[in-house]
């Protein structure tokens, strides 16, 4: 039963990573940049939800919606102001800018909310954990909902990129930006939309994560951000199913390492697994081989 409990915690943590990893992977796919500020958008989402529900006494679900809206706008704004002017200047400039945006967001949060941790109230405040098998298996509502949310997000997103016009346009831009323009696709709009979706999902991930681990500080987003980035690379950066699989596997490895090996070594083990996967398959589990243009 302990194994099953750990597996469920692993899936739940992995689902959070997967939802964050989607933001990394979609943005990388379309604009070939690593948005290292993505983790901090999660943190802003957490704080927004905190402010709405604790300071303003709003319903936690309504607070989540507002946090999503704010993060969506924030994502669009970051891309517009920080990344778009640098498009075509080389990846190093954009990478450094992303790190700059990351520190900027952390320090803005520090300025507004201070360094003291805030106690986050869960989306499921007061909901009793479900006990199964005579009480030996406990599943929290947070875990269940996080796993379900991940599945829903994956289904909706997969349908979106495969079935809708805007989604197909995003895939076209990811493949060949120039050819997409020749089709009449507004590349700027497609990239904005990608940032909007990724950042909106970051808010969801932030709230889910803070519901399970209810401490909020300005650096809350940094470590999950790095882990989710790892998950995206693990699964094959640029691939949506890859982000999901990478996230889930990473979450399970982390929880199992904590439970059966050592809490201190858990992170080291996670990153060691990444290194091994990349050595064996440099494009990640589901990564596409980049086809060379003839």
């Amino acid at each position: 039963m302990k194994l099953l409990t750990n597996l469920i915690s692993g899936l739940s943590l992995g689902s959070v990573y997967a939802i964050i990893a989607l933001g990394y992977t979609m943005v990388y796919g379309i604009s070939k940049m690593l948005n290292f500020a993505h983790g901090d958008v999660i943190m802003i989402g957490g704080y927004m939800s905190f402010v709405m529900s604790v300071y303003l006494g709003m319903n936690a679900w309504l607070a989540l919606l507002i946090a999503m809206f704010v993060c969506t706008c924030l994502g669009i704004l970051i891309e517009r102001l920080a990344y778009r002017p640098l498009r075509g200047t080389g990846s190093l400039a954009v990478l450094i800018t992303a790190i700059g945006v990351s520190y900027f967001l952390q320090n803005v949060a520090l300025l507004i909310w201070g360094a003291n941790p805030k106690m986050f109230t869960s989306l499921f405040e007061g909901v009793q954990p479900i006990r199964l098998a005579g009480g030996s298996l406990t599943v929290t509502a947070e875990s269940l909902f996080t796993i379900a949310a991940n599945i829903i997000v994956m289904i909706v997103l997969t349908l979106f990129v495969n079935k809708t016009k805007a989604g197909k346009a995003m895939r076209a831009v990811s493949e060949d930006n120039g050819a997409a323009q020749l089709m009449g696709i507004n590349v700027n709009q497609s990239i904005s939309l990608t940032f909007a979706i990724g950042s909106g999902l970051a808010a969801v991930a932030g709230v889910l994560m803070c519901s399970a681990y209810p401490v909020l500080t300005p650096t809350t987003g940094a470590m999950p951000g790095i882990k989710a980035f790892t998950a995206a690379v693990f699964g094959g950066i640029g691939s949506i199913p890859g982000a999901m699989i990478g996230g889930l596997i990473l979450g399970i490895i982390e929880i199992f390492a904590r439970a059966y090996v050592s809490t201190e070594l858990a992170d080291a083990i996670v990153f060691a697994c990444l290194i091994i996967v990349l050595l064996v398959k440099p494009t990640g589990l589901l990564g596409k081989k980049i086809s060379e243009k003839v």
Binding site: K165, K168, A169, R171, A172, E175, D176, G178, A179, A180, L182, M183, G184, I185, K288, S291, K293, V294
Partner: peptide
């Protein structure tokens, strides 16, 4: 309409999806 050098079709999309992209506007 510009058919660029090297074709530059969307390799990962289906034939039909490529044509749909051509009809984007």
């Amino acid at each position: 309409s510009h058919v660029p050098e090297g074709r530059r079709i969307f390799q990962g999309l289906t034939v039909e999806e490529n044509l749909q992209m051509g009809a984007f506007i």
